[in-house]
Simulated assay, not measured.
Amino acid sequence: MRNSNRNGTLMLALGLLSICLLGQTEKTDLKKVISEYENMIGTCHCKSIFRDQKGAWNDTINLTWNWKYIMDQKGIQDEGWYFSNGRKYHFTSIRVFDTINKQWYVSYFTPNLSSVPETWVGGKQGNEIVLKKEEATENGLVESILTFSNISKKGFDWEGKVMNKEKEMVYPFWKIWCLKEE
């Protein structure tokens, strides 16, 4: 088990615990923070492209992405699915806000996980929501960065990229453009 995954799972558990222990003041703050995602709540119909194993962009595919509040509106879960190469793929993420560290902890789950769920940490930066996760690879230390942008009542954009800090290289690996269902 990779240490970063173990730490991420621990932080998700601590975030859930902090939600359960909140006092009235923190609940008010939490409602404001949860509202960062309010424009995403509901069903989104998306166009998605991601890279194949050789690094080339695949054809654009349709993706459905549902967002909902969970845990008495103290957390957010998304779930989605898409078809690629004749197969249906599913995914889900659970988002909890740590009121002590003032950061979102987002754990990603998919049926074909080969290890514990991965967890990104971050929050609102200007008009975007940016989540990051560092990990060691054979090419050095990289940072996975997930960015939600152009967030409105009509939809949002999403980009996943990897940044190699040592080589100062950025490599986008997945892009999604979503419109909310009316």
Rank of each mutant, 00 (worst) to 15 (best):
residue 58 N to M: 06
residue 80 G to C: 04
residue 137 T to V: 11
residue 116 V to H: 07
residue 102 K to E: 04
residue 3 N to S: 12
residue 99 T to K: 02
residue 59 D to G: 15
residue 140 G to A: 09
residue 54 K to R: 10
residue 107 S to K: 06
residue 57 W to T: 02
residue 19 I to T: 13
residue 56 A to H: 12
residue 54 K to Y: 13
residue 154 K to E: 14
residue 19 I to W: 08
residue 99 T to S: 06
residue 157 D to Y: 00
residue 1 M to P: 02
residue 25 T to E: 14
residue 4 S to M: 09
residue 128 E to N: 14
residue 93 S to H: 05
residue 130 V to A: 02
residue 152 S to A: 11
residue 34 I to N: 03
residue 97 F to I: 02
residue 71 M to I: 08
residue 17 L to P: 03
residue 29 D to P: 03
residue 132 K to L: 06
residue 165 K to R: 13
residue 41 I to D: 02
residue 149 S to N: 10
residue 92 T to Y: 11
residue 124 K to M: 09
residue 155 G to P: 11
residue 176 I to P: 05
residue 66 N to E: 06
residue 45 H to T: 08
residue 134 E to V: 04
residue 57 W to Q: 04
residue 157 D to V: 05
residue 124 K to T: 01
residue 55 G to K: 11
residue 122 G to Q: 04
residue 7 N to D: 13
residue 12 L to D: 03
residue 79 E to P: 06
residue 138 E to F: 14
residue 181 E to W: 00
residue 145 I to Q: 12
residue 101 N to A: 03
residue 151 I to F: 04
residue 22 L to I: 11
residue 2 R to F: 14
residue 26 E to W: 01
residue 51 R to F: 01
residue 58 N to W: 00
residue 44 C to L: 08
residue 129 I to Y: 03
residue 31 K to D: 03
residue 4 S to E: 15
residue 144 S to I: 14
residue 33 V to D: 00
residue 150 N to Y: 01
residue 136 A to C: 10
residue 117 P to T: 00
residue 28 T to Y: 01
residue 139 N to M: 13
residue 166 E to Q: 10
residue 76 I to F: 01
residue 129 I to D: 01
residue 106 V to W: 04
residue 160 G to C: 03
residue 129 I to S: 04
residue 182 E to P: 12
residue 37 Y to K: 11
residue 145 I to Y: 12
residue 92 T to I: 00
residue 57 W to A: 03
residue 139 N to D: 08
residue 108 Y to S: 08
residue 87 R to S: 09
residue 30 L to K: 00
residue 155 G to L: 01
residue 54 K to N: 10
residue 110 T to K: 13
residue 128 E to S: 10
residue 153 K to M: 10
residue 170 V to W: 11
residue 175 K to V: 14
residue 19 I to Y: 10
residue 90 H to I: 09
residue 175 K to H: 07
residue 129 I to R: 07
residue 158 W to A: 12
residue 1 M to K: 12
residue 15 G to I: 03
residue 156 F to V: 08
residue 28 T to V: 14
residue 167 K to E: 12
residue 168 E to D: 14
residue 18 S to E: 09
residue 115 S to V: 03
residue 141 L to F: 10
residue 85 N to R: 15
residue 108 Y to V: 05
residue 91 F to M: 11
residue 127 N to P: 04
